[in-house]
């Protein structure tokens, strides 16, 4: 536990100091939303479907960049090696890295939601509160997946290319469920009517958090 909080607090402190990842993530989310508005045309993206879709596109791509960066920061001066041979076990290391990635993604998503409301002419109302648990589930799942895969791709050639190639297809079920559930909520449906989608998100999160926790050991160590 002490190890978990030490690593997590260290990551947050580093981020507070430079603000690099978060600012980059917020900027990237903003750009993705703008690009989507241009790409799909002013009319094409109106309504909850378009808004929800744009939000999740931002989540996937901002998350990919964020998680890669979070692990690359450990690469400087071989810090990841220092962590791997420290008394903190590798599963705890996974938990800490995943939490840090989730926190950065959550900050970017808050900004993205605010921008989405403006760009897509939605209202700030109770519907936005209901989107929170859906996004939270998506962020946890993606953070777990991305942390595991960033460790996998981190030491290969073309790491930043490989990471989205591996992560995006794996994220498809959560993406489908997340977009559908977000669109439903934005259209005014209650969460209780979206149980099937929430179920998929929960199942996805459980699979990737548990497998990441168990398998991180295998990808963190070196030969």
């Amino acid at each position: 536990m002490a190890g978990l909080s030490a690593v997590l607090l260290k990551d947050l402190k580093l981020e507070l100091r430079s603000g690099q990842s978060t600012i980059a993530l917020v900027a990237l989310s903003l750009l993705i939303l703008v690009v989507l508005v241009f790409a799909l045309g002013n009319e094409g993206v109106r309504g909850p479907e378009g808004a929800a879709g744009a939000l999740w596109v931002a989540l996937v791509f901002a998350g990919t960049v964020g998680a890669t960066k979070a692990l690359l920061a450990e690469g400087e001066n071989g810090c990841l090696r220092g962590l791997v041979i420290s008394p903190v076990d590798r599963a705890t290391l996974f938990a800490a890295k995943m939490m840090a990635a989730a926190i950065f993604m959550a900050i970017a998503e808050i900004a993205a939601v605010a921008l989405m409301v403006l760009f897509f002419n939605l209202e700030f109302d109770a519907r936005l509160a209901r989107i929170v648990p859906i996004l939270a589930l998506g962020i946890v799942g993606f953070a777990a997946l991305a942390t595991l895969l960033a460790a996998v791709s981190g030491r290969t050639r073309a790491a930043d290319l490989l990471m989205p190639i591996l992560a995006v297809p794996m994220f498809v079920p959560a993406l489908i469920a997340g977009v559908k559930a977000s669109a439903g909520v934005l259209a005014g449906r209650p969460l209780s009517g979206l149980q099937a989608w929430l179920g998929i998100l929960v199942a996805f999160d459980i699979i990737f958090v548990v497998s990441g926790y168990l398998l991180f050991e295998q990808v963190a160590r070196e030969d």
Binding site: A2, G3, A6, V7, K10, K13, L14, R17, S18, E76, N77, G78, C79, R81, G82, L83, I85, S86, P87, V88
Partner: peptide, 25 residues
Amino acid sequence: VLSHQSFLYPNLTARENLEFYGRLY
């Protein structure tokens, strides 16, 4: 362990680096 890499975080201060590793150990 002292490796040829320092395992130190460039964006943390000297004290913060030591305190961080101290907590881990």
